[in-house]
């Protein structure tokens, strides 16, 4: 009997004896960590949802959900990005549920075929730079500029296990896809040059260190991460609205198939994605929601950020099954 089974047995007997105080909290897997996870847990509690968030890196959670497929430990998955959610859905791990806030959500963020994955906020993956030492003119104007000799050793590529790294690598690669969606040799040449020109690291500390010791000037990062890094290292960030567009990733929520608390899970999803909670989160952390009603209720800076950059058109559902192969090629033949 698993721990979860024991808990269930306890909670069942608790319900039978007329006391709900023993009810098991909803287990939520999410890459939201630290103060963000604390905030969500506290707000949920205030709204009557008893949850525990297990937070870990996006790709670690993804692997874990796949590994636990026979015996799922999570009730809800929250905050994995488009490609990961698409893969987990295609593995048959999610339960259908149309959240109350699906109405009014733009079609790209809905799941009109399977009714499983709904997106709640988005973030661009940007080219940013240390504006204290680099002018806007000298900064790259496009992702494809990075291979130029003047940027050698000035930008960092992190671990391919990170959602951010994967997203921008895919964003660059898809520009080189042929009619079948395969990457051309020109694209792989570009990728080799990109890696040759870069500082390659595989830990967050090494990434920060590259900026602290002044080697790295250009930060390829998700929007919120740019500000966080600039603040901790102590420089003024500049952000490039790149030619050819900026990859946007959106994070989704879904209910795990086989959850023993489907009603609580549905109630939590309905609550979490609602414009009120989304705008409150936006106020707290500056994250841009995708629901128009939530954007309208958000602070002005967040509203401005929502239209700051030109999005790159990426069909994540089509790309998702190819990403593993691309990352393998990068890791084994290019890196």
């Amino acid at each position: 009997m698993t721990l979860k089974g024991i808990f269930t047995a306890i909670s069942v007997s608790a319900v039978l004896s007329g006391s709900a105080a023993w009810a098991e909290p909803l287990t939520i897997y999410s890459p939201q960590g630290e103060e963000r996870a604390v905030w969500i847990t506290e707000q949920a509690k205030a709204a009557g949802h008893d949850i525990t968030i297990l937070s870990a890196g996006g790709s670690e959670l993804f692997d874990r959900i796949l590994a636990e497929r026979a015996n799922p430990q999570a009730d809800v998955v929250l905050g994995l990005i488009d490609a990961s959610m698409a893969t987990l859905k295609s593995e048959g791990l999610f339960e259908a549920h149309v959240p109350t806030w699906a109405e009014g959500l733009p079609a790209v963020y809905r799941d009109d075929t399977d009714h499983m994955v709904y997106k709640f906020w988005q973030t661009p993956i940007v080219v940013a730079y240390n504006a204290d030492v680099m002018t806007a003119d000298a900064a790259p104007h496009s992702w494809l500029d990075l291979i130029k000799p003047e940027y050698k050793g000035k930008y960092v590529i992190g671990s391919t296990a990170w959602q951010t790294t994967r997203s921008f690598l895919v964003g660059m690669l898809v520009r080189f896809s042929d009619e079948n969606g395969e990457i051309t040799d020109v694209g792989w040449d570009f990728m080799s040059k990109l890696y040759e020109n870069a500082i390659v690291v595989d830990s967050g500390d090494a990434l920060t260190a590259a900026f602290v010791n002044g080697e790295a000037v250009i930060n390829l990062n998700w929007f919120g991460g740019v500000g966080k890094l600039a603040e901790s290292v102590g420089f003024t960030p500049g952000i490039v609205d790149t030619e050819g567009g900026t990859p946007f990733i959106s994070e989704g929520v879904a209910i795990m198939k086989g959850t023993d608390q489907p009603d609580q899970a549905k109630a939590f999803v309905d609550w979490f994605g609602s414009p009120e909670v989304m705008s409150a989160y936006a106020t707290e952390f500056g994250q841009v929601p995708v629901h128009p009603a939530a954007i309208a209720m958000s602070p002005e800076t967040v509203q401005a950020n929502a239209t700051l950059l030109t999005p790159q058109d990426i069909d994540w559902d089509a790309v998702a099954p190819k990403i593993d192969g691309w990352i393998q090629k990068i890791e084994l033949e290019i890196k």
Binding site: D63, D202, D324, E331
Partner: peptide, 19 residues
Amino acid sequence: GQRFDMVSELILTLNSLRR
């Protein structure tokens, strides 16, 4: 260091790359 692998380490990498 960053770009130095030996065989045991690479077996782990291959496994995490789902190969």
